[in-house]
Structures are given as structure tokens and as C-alpha cells.
Simulated assay, not measured.
Amino acid sequence: MSLKEVDSTNNFLKNILSNSKPVPEGTVIMAEDQFAGRGQRENVWYAEPGKNLTFSILLKPNFVDARMQFDVTRVASLGVYDALSPLLGNQLSIKWPNDIYYGDKKLGGMLIENILQGSQIKNSVVGIGLNVNQNNFPDTAGNATSVTQILHKDYELKNLLAEICNHIERYYLSLKAGSVDFVRNTYLSRLYRLNEAKRYESNGEVFTGTIRGVTDNGLLIIDHADGQKHFSLKELVFLKD
């Protein structure tokens, strides 16, 4: 479903689900203008109308234990990565947990909202924002970039949307078939700053650490002067060199 304007495609999809009408898995809600898009840490996602991809996909991963819901994040991140990789090459990476980076610039991100039922995931609303044909960003967008800034040409949004959905489906079906290690190892191999000594901040402390992995449930593993530590999203800030 394509919408002209909406506050957030995730909110729109969740509202449909809350009306108790059956919504088929794989439903995609795309907005030309999303005026209240959200990212991680309650960040606002800025997107120029008609220039970018802002959409949400409904998944029903009831085969995933709620404790392992980060596997859904891995699947979504890999799907976007694989759709962009033929266009953008080896400077592409996934910044933990689910931002898409080109070099040290942010191309996109996602907000994944899981609705749990007991120990299983009933629904996953996967919201994705990707900068495609936008050339100018406000100062508040920080290190944002877009496909058109990298390639110096516009790209057809619906073609890219179809590619992303196809690749997400491929990884999702791999996960469903039990290829959990394949999904986790592939995600790790594409991680931004993997095995590089870089600066971070946690609880007011600035330190140099090296990303070594991600736990099964999604914590970032970093080698620290005091030994190996695990971090959640709220505990860690990536610093520029």
C-alpha cells in the first residue's frame, strides 16, 4: 500500500493490526511523505518527500523465541545491505544494531517493533528509512548521505523497494528454515568497525575499543582495556576519530 502522507508507516501498520483485522505477512506500507518518522533512541528521521524510501513491512516470525528477537534485526539489516551492495560496493556496512553506512556516513536506518505473545513474537513491524534521491540535508542530519550523492544519479524508488523486500524475504526464509548461524555470521561479517580499534563512550567514559562480535540476543561485544564487555544500545555511543 502506498500512502501520500502519514505520520509514521510503523504507526499506520500497528493501527491496522490493532483493529483486529487479519493483515497478511509481507504487507508493505510505503509513504511518499512521512512527517514523524522515528529512529533508534527516539531520534527523528528526516526525509524529503518523494525522494527517499520510507516504508514498513509486516513479518510474523512466530518461530523466533522472544529472547532471540535480534535475529529479526539481522534479517532486515542484511536485506537492505544486499539490495544496495551491487550499487555501492565494498564501502557499505551495517552499523550495529541496524543502521546502513557508506564509509562513515549514514544512508539509512530502521526501527523494528516486535509485538510479543508469551515467549514468541506474534508480529514484527519493520520500519525502514533510506536516503535515495535526496541531495540536501539539514545540519541536524549530521553525517547523512544518499544513494544519489554517492552515484551522482537518481535511482528508481520502487525498483529499490522491490530489491530490498526480495532480499529480506531470502534471509527471513533462511532463518525460518533453521539457518540461524548463517544469518548471524553474515550479519557479523558486514559490521561497521569490526576488528578496528575505535573510540566510544559509555556512562561518561571515553575509551578505545575493538568490536569483536554480537551476542545471540544482540549485545555488542567490544574488547576494552578492562577486558571484553557487552553493551546494549542505550549504553554506547560511537565517537568520531
Rank of each mutant, 00 (worst) to 15 (best):
N15K: 12
D226T: 15
S2P: 00
V44N: 10
V72E: 00
Y187F: 13
V183H: 04
S119R: 07
N166E: 13
T140D: 12
Q69F: 15
S2I: 14
L111P: 00
S124D: 04
P86N: 06
G103L: 05
K229R: 15
S119Y: 04
L53S: 05
L191I: 12
G178P: 08
Q117W: 01
D71K: 03
A66R: 04
E32M: 12
H230Q: 14
T210D: 06
A31H: 01
T148E: 10
Q91Y: 07
G218I: 03
D241L: 13
T145L: 03
L78A: 03
S20K: 14
S2T: 12
V237W: 09
H224R: 13
V126Y: 00
F182T: 15
N10V: 02
N11C: 09
A225K: 10
H224D: 14
D33R: 05
G127N: 03
L175P: 00
K105C: 05
V72W: 03
K105S: 09
L13S: 03
Q228Y: 03
S124E: 01
E42H: 10
G218K: 02
E113I: 04
V147S: 01
M68F: 11
R67T: 10
V125M: 01
V75N: 00
E156R: 07
H230M: 11
Q134E: 12
T54N: 07
S8K: 02
F182P: 06
R38K: 14
Y102A: 02
G103P: 05
K4P: 03
